[in-house]
Computed example of a mutant assay.
Amino acid sequence: MSTRRKVGLAGAVVGAASAGVAAAALAKRYAVGRIRLRPDLEANEPFGELRGRRETVTTPDGVRIHAEIDGPDDAPLTVVLCHGYCLTLDSWHYQWRDLRESYRLVMWDQRCHGQSGRSEDCSIDRLGEDLALVLDELVPGPCVLVGHSMGGMTIMALADRRPELFGDKVRGVSLISTSAGKLAELTLGLPALVSKVVHKAVPSAVSVMRRSGNLVDRGREAGTDLSFLALRYLGFGDSKSVSPTVVDFVESMIRATPSEVIADFYPALMSHDKLTALDVLNKVPTAIIVGERDWLTPLDHSKAIAAAVPAAELTTVPATSHLVQLERPGVVNDALRELLKRAERGET
């Protein structure tokens, strides 16, 4: 083949590839644009603007944990809200707004997240010890623990390390979109072969994030249409009704989480196994809440928790995914209020 023909062929290939990339980008932009043009009932919701009395507790390994306290100090119970992986205490927006008039609330940023300090110890057991410290220093009376995703795992770690707290200080527990273990086996709803490839690729990606976190973060700073669509697909179930403002709110929390933090916690999540610790929760009223379409901590994981805690109330929320507390806050808040009433009555 002549040089001229080779150059022409190469140019054609590059041109076709460029056209394909441009077409994909245009389609993606069009899809996001259509989503944002839909009526958005949450457009004026003040996400991230609720504030309480700021407190700081310092862990034995020197990490400063940021917390905020709101609600009446003479309330019968304190509700301690433990957020999930890559989120912050602001992810409890609707629960904070709904419960602050009736209950004393303690929201806290888990280590390395939000306004809390960084640490090299990113284990779930350490998070459980942090929660114990929060209870010791910021919760003088009885409380109910509420955990979403990694926050639920934090509660399980506390149950494993400090079982004597349950039934006395801890009067109730809610585990939302969480798992007691085997997260490494997730398929994310993908075909088996594709899921296998993804699981093989993730450790390498995590390694890059750990080694080159600053470079990766610079690429994440502005946010992208792709991250918006991915979050909307993985984090929310009812794609037609979810608020773009809510998606943007969550995406901003995830984007603000340093890449090194994402990488450092990933192995702890994959190796998490606290199924044997769940028996402690039989001492107190327990509410398990999960989205029917949760791909990240699927329904089967909540069913496994419910099997280990037979007295627990399992609420499955239709057409909803991992961020159920933001996607269907009314359903979640109703379940939490029922749990709080049971805890006040001293039920088990």
Rank of each mutant, 00 (worst) to 15 (best):
S259Q: 07
R126F: 08
E185Q: 12
D40Q: 06
D109K: 05
G8W: 14
Q115T: 00
L281T: 07
T320Y: 10
V13M: 13
V290Y: 02
W108H: 13
K200C: 12
G330Y: 01
H66S: 11
V324L: 11
G213R: 14
G346N: 09
W108F: 15
C86V: 10
T297P: 10
P60I: 04
V194K: 11
L339S: 09
V134M: 14
G235T: 03
L87Y: 11
L50Q: 03
S252A: 13
E251W: 00
M107S: 00
V79L: 11
G33K: 07
L188I: 06
A24T: 11
A19P: 02
R218V: 10
G181K: 01
K6W: 15
A19I: 13
D70F: 02
L127G: 04
F265T: 04
R218I: 06
T187I: 02
G8D: 08
H83I: 08
R111G: 07
S2N: 15
V284E: 10
V146C: 13
L87G: 00
P318R: 03
R29M: 01
G346E: 14
D98A: 09
K182Y: 09
L131H: 09
A67C: 15
E327G: 03
S271R: 14
E292H: 05
V290F: 02
R220I: 04
S195A: 15
